[in-house]
Deep mutational scan, measured.
Amino acid sequence: DTLHVTQDGKHIELRGLSEEEIKLVEELLRRGRKVEEALKIIEELRK
């Protein structure tokens, strides 16, 4: 699936995420994380 995010005035499209990963990214962003940080966390969880 694809998640569309706008952060720091930039539109970012995150592709290839599972539904659970999207929920996790959304939660991390709500808690003030940056998109880059959220993606690093997803990458770690995929290992």
Rank of each mutant, 00 (worst) to 15 (best):
D1E: 10
D1G: 15
D1Q: 09
D1L: 15
D1P: 15
T2R: 07
T2H: 11
T2S: 12
L3W: 03
L3R: 02
L3D: 07
L3Q: 07
H4G: 07
H4Y: 02
H4A: 07
V5K: 03
V5F: 02
V5I: 10
V5Q: 05
V5W: 02
V5D: 05
V5R: 01
V5T: 07
T6R: 02
T6W: 15
T6E: 12
T6I: 15
T6V: 14
Q7A: 06
Q7F: 01
Q7L: 05
D8C: 03
D8W: 00
D8G: 07
D8Y: 00
D8P: 04
D8F: 01
D8H: 02
D8R: 01
G9A: 02
G9W: 01
G9Y: 01
G9F: 02
K10R: 06
K10T: 11
K10P: 06
K10Y: 12
K10N: 11
K10F: 10
K10D: 11
H11W: 12
H11E: 14
H11S: 07
H11L: 13
I12W: 15
I12F: 15
I12V: 11
I12Y: 15
E13Y: 11
E13G: 05
E13D: 10
L14I: 15
L14R: 02
L14N: 04
L14T: 05
L14M: 05
L14H: 03
L14S: 03
R15H: 13
R15E: 10
G16V: 03
G16Q: 06
G16S: 04
G16H: 09
L17M: 07
L17T: 01
L17Q: 00
L17H: 01
L17C: 01
L17S: 00
S18K: 06
S18H: 06
S18P: 01
S18C: 07
E19M: 13
E19I: 14
E19C: 10
E20N: 13
E21A: 02
E21I: 02
E21N: 01
E21D: 03
E21W: 03
I22P: 00
I22R: 12
I22E: 06
I22M: 12
K23Q: 12
K23L: 13
K23I: 12
K23P: 04
K23R: 14
L24C: 07
L24N: 04
L24R: 06
L24A: 05
L24P: 00
L24E: 04
V25Q: 00
V25C: 06
V25S: 01
V25M: 08
V25E: 00
V25R: 00
E26I: 15
E26S: 15
E26R: 15
E26P: 00
E27K: 14
E27Q: 14
E27S: 14
L28V: 06
L28K: 01
L28Y: 13
L28E: 03
L29T: 03
L29Y: 03
L29K: 01
L29F: 09
R30W: 11
R30T: 05
R30I: 05
R30K: 10
R30N: 06
R31Q: 11
R31W: 15
R31E: 07
R31S: 09
R31Y: 13
R31N: 09
R31H: 08
G32T: 01
G32N: 05
G32A: 02
R33K: 11
R33I: 14
R33W: 15
R33L: 14
K34C: 01
K34G: 10
K34F: 08
K34M: 09
V35G: 02
V35P: 06
V35E: 03
V35Q: 02
V35D: 01
V35L: 11
V35Y: 04
V35F: 05
E36Y: 15
E36V: 10
E36H: 12
E36W: 15
E36L: 13
E36F: 15
E37L: 07
E37H: 09
E37T: 07
E37N: 05
E37F: 14
E37P: 01
E37S: 06
A38G: 02
A38S: 05
A38I: 15
L39G: 01
L39P: 00
L39Q: 04
L39H: 02
L39S: 02
L39E: 03
L39Y: 06
K40Q: 14
K40P: 02
K40D: 10
K40F: 13
I41M: 12
I41Y: 12
I41W: 10
I41D: 05
I41C: 04
I41A: 10
I41Q: 08
I41E: 09
I42Q: 00
I42R: 00
I42P: 00
I42N: 00
I42A: 01
I42E: 00
E43G: 06
E43M: 12
E43H: 10
E43R: 08
E43K: 05
E43W: 14
E43T: 07
E44K: 07
E44C: 08
E44N: 09
L45Y: 11
L45V: 06
L45D: 04
L45A: 10
L45W: 13
R46T: 02
R46K: 05
R46N: 04
K47P: 05
K47S: 15
K47N: 13
